[in-house]
Design a protein around this nucleic acid. Structure first.
Length: 490
RNA sequence: CGGGGCGUAGCUUAGCCCGGUAGAGCGCCUGCUUCGGGAGCAGGAGGUCGGAGGUUCAAAUCCUCUCGCCCCGACCA
C-alpha cells in the first residue's frame, strides 16, 4: 500500500525507475503519437534554465540567435554524401500540402546544416562577411525506432550553432571553444562531470570532418553523449557553394562548424542526480530553489504561519546578494488539506534542492528548519541573515552534487592494463568507463561493439588521459595509436 | 522490423480459463475531525470494458480481424 507511493529503486530496475520518476515528477508525459512526448511545466522549467545559461554563454562568445525554417527541400538533404546516408533512415517527409501532392517533397529538419549553409552562401561574398556565428533554438525530428522519454524521442528540442569561417584554424578553434562552453555548462550548471574528446570515425556526425563530444556517466554506469561540436571542414561549403573572395581576390570555400545540445540533458540530469526518492535538481538549474512548507494545526496557526511563510519568501526574493537579476527562486506551499509530510515527499520527488519547514516552534525560535534534497541533511537556520545563508547553502549543494557525481564516475572508471576477457566480464557486469588503448582500426572497434555492446565514446583530451598511455589495443593487442574511453552507451 | 507484454473509472488493477446486474485500491468532490515525514471517518461523482465484426437468449469474458501503447533487440542526440 505504502509501497506504490515509492518509486521502483534504481538497484531493482534502473529503466523502470527512470520512467516512473519522469512521469511521476511530472517532467513529461507520453503524447498520443508513439515516440513523442509532452514536456510538462516541471520539465520545461528545467529546460528554460538550461536555455538561459547556454544562451548567455553563446552570446558571450559572439553568437547571435536566428531562426531557420522547419521544412527543408528534400534535394538539399542529398547534396552532402555522408549527410544523406547518415540521415536518410530517420527522415520524416512531407509529401502533401494544401491537399495536393507536392512537386518536391519536404523533409522535416533532423538538423539544419543544409538549409543554413544554403542561406550562408547567399549572404557571403567576401572574407569581410566572415565569420558568421549563428545559433538557433529549435525542434527537430528524427524517426527513431526505439524511443525513451527525453533520451530519444521522435521530436526533441535543442540548440544548434552554425558558423562559417575563412580559415580551417578558425573553424577548429570555434569547434573546440564550443566544446569548452558545453563542458562549463555541464560542470557548473548541471553539476555533471564530463570527459571531452574526439569521436572515432564511426561515431562522428554524418558530414563532419571531426566530431568532439562531452561524455557523461549515468548512475547505471552507461555513457551518455551529452553534446557534440563538429568541425565540418569544407564539406558543406562545397556542397552548397558557400564561397567567398579572399584578401588576394581568389575564391575559397568557407570552413564550417556546428554544435548542439538537446532536451536529452533533462534525462541526463535525472540519471546523474536522481535517487530512489525522485529527482534532485542542481540549484542553478532548479526552477524552484527553495520550497517553504508552513506547518499548522488550527486556523489561528494557519493564519500566523501562512503570513510568516510569505514574509520569509519576500525576504528571500527581495535579497539581491546574488545580483539584482539572479533572485532566489522560492515557492510557498500553502495547499490546504494536505499534510506537511505528504508535501515533503512530493517536493523531494520533484527535486527541489532545498526545503524550509516553518512551524510554530521554528517561528518561536525565529528560524526555519532546512532540509537538503541531495543529502537529506537537516539543520535549523536563523531568520536573521537567512537569504545569505540560504544562498550559501544552495551553492554548497551545487558543489557537493558535482563532487558526488565526479566521485561516482571515478569509482566506476578503470584505467591501466585490462585484458579483453576482463573487459567483457566488466561490460556484462557493472559496466563503467574503461580507458584503454586502440589500434585505430575500425574493425577492432566493430568487433568490440559486436561482442560487448561497448563502443569508443571518445579519444579523451589530454587532461583526461591516463598518466601512462596504454601500449596495446584493447581488442587485438596490437600497438595502441590512441587512448580511448570504452563503454556501453545510451 | 523481430521477440515479449498489456489495453476494464484520472491512475493501478480484479473479474476472462468456466458467458448471466462491472468490483476494489489510490486519486477526485462535499462535510467533520486532523495536521512537525505519505491522515481518519462519513457521504458522493466518475465506465459505450481500445475498436469492428462474429457465435449466443445473453459477451469485459469465446472466435476472427484491427488499432494503440509499453518493454527487450537491430539504428541513433
Amino acid at each position: 500500500m505504502a509501497d506504490d507511493k515509492k518509486l521502483t529503486s534504481r538497484a531493482e530496475d534502473f529503466s523502470a525507475w527512470y520512467n516512473e520518476l519522469v512521469l511521476r515528477s511530472e517532467l513529461a508525459d507520453y503524447s498520443p503519437v508513439k515516440g513523442s512526448m509532452v514536456i510538462r511545466p516541471n520539465g520545461y522549467g528545467i529546460w528554460e534554465r538550461m536555455q538561459r545559461a547556454l544562451d548567455d554563454m553563446f552570446k558571450a562568445t559572439g553568437h547571435q540567435n536566428a531562426y531557420f525554417p522547419l521544412l527543408i527541400p528534400e534535394s538539399f538533404m542529398k547534396k552532402e554524401a555522408e549527410h544523406v546516408e547518415g540521415f536518410a533512415p530517420e527522415l520524416a517527409v512531407v509529401t502533401h500540402g494544401g491537399g495536393k501532392l507536392l512537386e518536391e517533397p519536404l523533409v522535416i529538419r533532423p538538423t539544419s546544416e543544409t538549409i543554413i549553409y544554403h542561406m550562408f552562401a547567399k549572404w557571403t561574398q567576401s572574407y569581410r562577411d566572415l565569420p558568421i556565428l549563428i545559433n538557433q533554438w529549435a525542434n527537430v525530428v528524427r524517426w527513431e525506432m526505439r524511443t525513451r522519454l527525453f533520451l530519444r524521442t521522435l521530436e526533441f528540442l535543442w540548440q544548434e550553432g552554425h558558423t562559417a569561417h575563412a580559415t580551417h584554424d578558425e573553424a577548429e578553434e570555434e569547434a573546440r571553444r564550443m566544446l569548452g562552453v558545453y563542458r562549463t555548462f555541464m560542470e557548473q550548471w548541471m553539476a555533471m562531470p564530463v570527459i571531452t574528446g574526439v569521436k572515432s570515425e564511426s561515431e562522428k556526425f554524418a558530414g563532419a570532418v571531426r566530431t568532439y563530444a562531452c561524455e557523461a556517466m549515468m548512475q547505471d554506469n552507461k555513457a551518455l553523449q551529452a553534446s557534440t561540436s563538429h568541425n565540418l571542414g569544407q564539406n558543406f561549403a562545397k556542397a552548397f557553394e558557400l564561397q567567398f573572395q579572399d584578401e588576394k581576390g581568389g575564391m575559397a570555400f568557407a570552413w564550417n562548424t556546428s554544435w548542439g545540445l538537446t532536451t536529452r540533458m533533462v534525462g541526463a540530469l535525472v540519471m546523474t542526480h536522481g535517487d530512489d526518492n525522485g529527482l534532485c535538481t542542481p540549484p542553478r538549474l532548479a526552477p524552484i530553489e527553495i520550497v517553504i512548507v508552513p506547518i499548522w494545526k488550527n486556523d489561528d496557526e494557519k493564519a500566523r504561519l501562512t503570513a510568516a511563510a510569505l514574509t520569509v519568501k519576500a525576504e528571500l526574493t527581495e535579497w539581491t546578494g546574488r545580483g539584482a537579476t539572479d533572485r532566489l527562486r522560492v515557492h510557498v506551499d500553502l495547499r490546504d488539506g494536505m499534510r506537511s509530510g505528504a508535501k515533503y515527499y512530493e517536493w523531494e520527488l520533484r527535486g527541489v534542492p532545498l526545503r524550509f519547514e516553518l512551524g510554530p516552534r521554528d517561528l518561536e525560535k525565529q528560524a526555519v528548519f532546512a532540509a537538503r534534497r541531495d543529502t537529506r541533511a537537516k539543520q535549523s537556520l536563523a531568520m536573521d541573515g537567512l537569504p545569505a545563508a540560504a544562498a550559501a547553502l544552495l551553492e554548497r549543494i551545487q558543489n557537493d552534487m558535482f563532487q558526488a557525481a565526479l566521485n561516482r564516475r571515478e569509482a566506476n572508471s578503470v584505467r591501466g592494463r585490462i585484458s579483453y576477457d576482463e573487459f567483457k566480464v566488466l561490460m556484462d557486469g557493472k559496466g563503467g568507463f574503461v580507458f584503454a588503448g586502440w589500434c585505430g582500426e575500425s574493425a577492432c572497434e566493430a568487433k568490440v561493439k559486436e561482442e560487448t555492446k561497448a563502443t569508443i565514446r571518445c579519444m579523451p583530451d589530454a587532461e583526461f588521459r591516463s598518466p601512462e598511455a596504454p601500449a596495446t589495443c584493447l581488442c587485438c593487442g596490437g600497438p595502441s595509436k590512441a587512448e580511448a574511453v570504452w563503454a556501453r552507451a545510451y
